[in-house]
């Protein structure tokens, strides 16, 4: 029975485990509109030191679309369950998660559910809430902006069905870099993309920050249209064991545009010498 279920999670979430056996486990959780492919720039370095677990959330990349349920995946808890299922089925006991963007929140939810297993989280360009909540929180967006974004997804349906590039790479990146980054688009089903977008953009998980018990490293980009520096500062001030590093960079995908720069910081955090 165990084997059957294990292979079912491996299939549903297109799980890949690479790197030396017995090395510490590092799980890489992709963000909205993308898949595990977005970690490809960091992977060569990471797989030398760690047992790296790559996966796609149900509905993204090469996951099993048949496993998608609108109900389950209408909130981030559903995605956190994917992480928990993978950890349970593959029997990992000590896991560090690197989560991009919304996956930082998803990893946090999972870590609160399994505090003895998820030991550290690295958040790349995280935001617990994209909405502005006056007076003391500026997520960066008014509800209207985000509703319009979802509307654009509906109205440009066919385009999104084909591909969706990693969200926001920053306008001042060189065209060559944007070209290279978007060379392999992430495939996302339109219905799923919309559910994920709703779960991502209209949620507010600020209240769970104080419950994250593991050490957290926040890597924020100095110029990011989706998650500004003040969002990182807000998170750092509420997560009990957190440290924040602002990377002088443009865009929302530090792990793709500035991976050389963030890798040593991440490695040092995972294994302080």
């Amino acid at each position: 029975m165990g084997l059957r279920n294990m292979s079912s999670v491996v299939l549903s979430n297109n799980v890949k485990v690479i790197g030396p056996k017995g090395a510490p486990t590092l799980m890489l959780a992709h963000g909205f509109g993308c898949d595990q492919n977005m970690w490809r720039f960091m992977l060569p370095t990471l797989e030398k030191h760690y047992q790296v677990v790559l996966f796609d959330y149900v509905g993204s990349g090469k996951s099993l679309l048949t496993k998608f349920s609108k109900e389950k995946y209408s909130a981030l808890e559903g995605y956190a369950q994917d992480i928990q299922d993978i950890i349970n089925e593959l029997k990992f006991t000590d896991v560090t998660i690197i989560g991009h963007s919304v996956s930082s929140t998803i990893a946090s939810i999972a870590s609160i559910a399994m505090p003895n297993i998820i030991k550290k989280i690295i958040m790349v360009c995280p935001s617990p809430c994209f909405l502005n909540c006056p007076p003391d929180y500026k997520g960066g967006f008014e509800r209207n902006d985000l509703e319009e974004l979802i509307g654009l997804m509906d109205k440009n349906y066919i385009g999104w069905a084909n591909y969706l590039a990693p969200l926001v790479m920053g306008t001042s990146q060189s065209q060559e870099l944007i070209g290279e980054l978007s060379g392999s688009f992430c495939s996302t089903d339109p219905v799923v993309a919309k559910s994920f977008a709703n779960a991502t953009f209209f949620s507010d998980y600020r209240h769970i920050l104080q419950d994250i018990k593991c050490p957290v490293l926040i890597l924020q980009s100095s110029s990011d249209a989706l998650a500004n520096v003040s969002v990182g500062e807000y998170m750092a001030s509420r997560i009990p064991q957190s440290q924040m590093v602002v990377i002088k960079a443009e865009g929302h995908c530090l792990h793709m545009t500035d991976y050389d720069y963030i890798l040593p910081i991440a490695l040092k955090f995972i294994e302080p010498s």
Binding site: G151, Y163, L164, A165, L167, V168, S182, G183, A225
Partner: peptide, 23 residues
Amino acid sequence: ISKYITKASNIFLDSYIYPLLLT
């Protein structure tokens, strides 16, 4: 051009239209 389109459209431009143009 970013000045003349909405915030949502700018995100759309960055994440979809420009990558599509470059491909």
